[in-house]
Write a protein that binds this DNA or RNA. Structure first.
Lengths: 235, 235
DNA sequence: CGACGGGTTGAGCTACCTCAACCCTGGTGG
DNA sequence: CCACCAGGGTTGAGGTAGCTCAACCCGTCG
């Protein structure tokens, strides 16, 4: 399920896999994570809070996490959702810059920062993997900026659904049947619109025959071309 | 002017500075950049475009660069501005994900990716510096998301001016006299509002006695406490 | 059973957008 | 030297997408 480019180490002369296996020492980020302890989190529980010391990085094994910042008056911006396979808690800062909270019961692998730091200090390949993961986060933030800064409510929802669809595809799951683990409030705070607008927009897409809403948490895309049109501003 | 943590290399045994100087081989990111060739760019000219091969990273020496994406119908989201000292073109992707365009005549130091890649492959400290720079970009994107997703026009402008003020302070320049090299259109496309709203908001802040606008490109903050109030939603 | 959290729908409001006129400045050319 | 023009900025008037407030529905849980 995980596409992992096996890191061939530059530190040991042993190029062959058997030699590495004998050492019993994890190497790549994914290998480290596979061996890391598992932590279980209830819905609404925090993995970490903004301002907390950044002690670990985490990989989501099951469930879903919302990453968000909260303004003094309670307004909330969700910066992203982390799903199984995603790594969270990256960043060079000593302190976490946002909250990470489970939107449903979630399992995480936890890797101490002291470990990742020291491994990265001697294994550039490992550092590259962290860099790559952070680079994906930045790309996601830029994508979201395009939505919150420029797109209409309908375009935002359409873009959001398509992103979920593409993520499903990358994980060899259905491109048309989309599970939404988060609430309407979460979607609204992610896209910068209110829950009412989220709800109305879903209803509108349903009435147009573009999606089907069996339950509020389960969307089926009926007309993906039309959804793509809507995402890029066709009215 | 530049705070640079001197990288002590793990590859050579020589820990002392004199030994390093003798080698005449640049080490830290800042050292590499100081030795890199200079490129001069006219206003409105592109440093690179979205989709271009990512061949170099750049450090702005003078001027200002806008980083932005453009939608098929022409809408534009500026993801950030790069000012002297900032490094642009980072990211693990083979291709650039956005346009980089000078907003006024600009000078850049250019470092080949093939070089940074190979250095990072053997010098983890150098990789850390790249990671740190990317991490700052992500934090900036998250800050902007809070504005475009949650704040009113007045709050966005206030936040924007305060960010400029704080940047000035970090560079030992005036906290109250702010130069705006970019146009109203740039500010609008950055904050997700129209040029008219930008203009009206500046006028409103001027009428409230919070700022002074000698010219349209030069803001003087008269009441920074009040500006901070406005930035976090007072009124 | 009642309470509560989450979702939907309606009615009215408003912050911001759109469209348009106008101003100012700097550069160009007659 | 001045007239003209183009690009950037400001201001006004009116329109509208999305917000606010409120009612209501439904499923779950104690």
């Amino acid at each position: 399920m995980l596409t992992q480019s096996l890191a061939f180490t530059t530190l040991t002369g042993n190029a062959m896999a058997p030699a590495r296996a004998e050492r019993h020492e994890p190497r790549s980020l994914q290998e480290h994570l596979a061996a890391a302890p598992l932590r279980k989190i209830e819905a609404k529980q925090n993995v970490f809070a903004e301002g907390d010391r950044s002690t670990h990085i985490y990989r989501v094994e099951s469930g879903a996490i919302s990453l968000h910042r909260i303004m003094p008056d309670g307004r909330r911006q969700i910066l992203g959702f982390a799903y199984p396979g995603d790594v969270i808690g990256l960043g060079a800062s000593e302190l976490h810059r946002f909250h990470a909270q489970a939107v449903k019961p979630t399992q995480l692998r936890c890797l101490r920062r002291s470990l990742t730091d020291s491994v990265a200090r001697v294994d550039p390949e490992f550092g590259q993997e962290l860099f790559h993961a952070l680079s994906l986060d930045l790309a996601a933030a830029h994508d979201l900026l395009l939505s919150t800064g420029q797109r209409s409510a309908t375009e935002r929802i359409a873009t959001f659904l398509l992103a979920m669809s593409r993520r499903n595809q990358r994980h060899n799951r259905s491109a048309t049947n989309i599970d939404l683990p988060m609430t309407r409030a979460d979607i609204g705070d992610f896209l910068g619109i209110t829950i009412e607008t989220v709800s109305r927009t879903f209803t509108k897409l349903r009435q147009l025959g573009i999606i089907d809403l069996a339950q509020s948490t389960s969307v089926r895309i009926l007309d993906i071309e039309e959804l793509e049109q809507l995402a890029e501003g066709a009215q």
